[in-house]
Each structure stands twice: as C-alpha cells, then as structure tokens.
Amino acid sequence: MIPVPYRVRSRRPDRADTVTLTLDPVEGAAPPFLPGQFTMLYAPGVGEIPISISGHARAGGYVQTVRAVGAVSRALCRTRRGEIIGVRGPFGTHWDLGLAHGLDVVVAAGGLGLAPLRPVVRHLAAHGSRFGRITLLVGSRTPSTVIYPRELARWARDFDVLVTVDHPDRAWRGPTGLITKLVGRAVFDPARTYAFVCGPEIMMRATASLLADRGVRPGRIALSLERNMKCGIGRCGHCQLGPLFTCADGPVVTYDMAAPLLEVRQL
C-alpha cells in the first residue's frame, strides 16, 4: 500500500479534460507491465485512483492517460513536468494477445476506453503478420474527445480504423451514432475472430452482445471492467462484482465470464 515515487517526465494535454503523463521511477526501474494492466496513481495529499497503462515510456516507465473527473484525477491532470507523484503496481489481468494469433482481430474502444487498448493496437501495428484481418473501431462523444488522434491516423495506414461520434461538429465527415453501428461495417470471420473491447459498461455490453450474435465465441471477447478501487490488490473490497475482485480477477475478463454478472442490475 506504499507508493513509489515517479517523476512526471512529460505531460501532454490530449483534449480539454484529458492529459497523458509519462512517468519514470525516481530510482531504479519500473516493473514490467502487460497490456491491460493498471497502476494506482497517488496525487500527494489528495488520494489514489486506478489508471490503466497505455504504453512504455522510453526510459522504461509508463505512459498513462487521465481524464479529470474527480478530485484525484483533476489533481493528477494538473501535475507539471518534473513533479513527483506516487505509483503502485502494475496490477490486474491483461489482454492476452497470444490468444488472438492467427485470428481476425476486432478492437472496439469507447471514449477513454482506447487508453488501456493502446498497447494492444500498437502491438497489432507492429506485428500485423501474426494476425488475420485487423479492425479498430472507436466511438466518442464528439470529434474533440477522440484521444490519440495522430496515432489513429497512423494506424489507419496499417489496418481498418473506423471512428464514430455521437455529436458531430460541422467539420466531421465520418460516421455518427453508437459504436455498435460500426460492428456491422467491420469485416471479420466471426468463427475465427478475437475481440478486445473497452469503454463504458453499457457500450461493452452492447458491443460484446452484438459480436456474440454475429458468431464470435464469448470466450474470445475480452472486456476491461471498471469499478471503484481503493487498494488494487484484492483487499479493500470495493471492486467486487459477484465473486470477482475486479482489481485482481480483472480488469480484463472474457465475455462468457462477465455476461451473467453484468446482466444483474447493480451487482
């Protein structure tokens, strides 16, 4: 429960309320992480929250994207380059890319859900030959809340990238509406597809259910759950979802395991 000091090496405001921090340990090396894992980020004197890891920093630390929604995330977004914050982790289960080898891959990200999927997409971009047809679907409230816009443009050279927004502005030429509409437009062989899905729970349920309806095996649809967490190590009890401790048994779970739990109101 004791955080390790990390220095904010760079701070890049992504959008109005979203900041991507690059964090390096003040001393020693950062423990390795697997795509989909998270850390507990401590804003000194304010509090600690779980934030997914979006990539490796060049010096071995973590790239993490934070949206300012509460007291702690606002404090983290306000940190300046050179400042020290606390980090614990990495914790939790990961996106198992190995299981997708040789299969078509659908990555579906809703809003900030692209942050924990970024290491998956980067891996797909770097090792495309190991996989079948790759599709990245992104849903966002507005064009200006799409995170990592420059990378999206770069990834679009390697595979299909479809972005939809709920509320288009005048300049928007792409699709509008829910991400579920894009699932119908994506090209993949359902019997030979692995899906990585992350976003608001209602978006994940709708997307996963649609993918399953199209014939993707529920055991091949991975989701990343989000719950209130105080410890990240299965001790505080806050993140329980039925028998699961989301922090330790999740955040990444497969749809066959999650579906019966997510169906229960307020579980």
Binding site: M1, G45, V46, G47, E48, K230, C236, G237, H238
Partner: peptide, 20 residues
C-alpha cells in the same frame, strides 16, 4: 468484514473500516 477505504489528511494516508 474486512472492507476498508483510504483517507488523506494533509501528507498522511490512513486506512479505515468501510462498509458496503
């Protein structure tokens, strides 16, 4: 019952009993 929450008072961090 083991659930806890955390509490920050200035520079000090506490753990205290919480309830579902």
């Amino acid at each position: 019952c083991f659930c806890v929450t955390t509490e920050d008072a200035d520079d000090e961090r506490f753990e205290r009993w919480d309830s579902c």
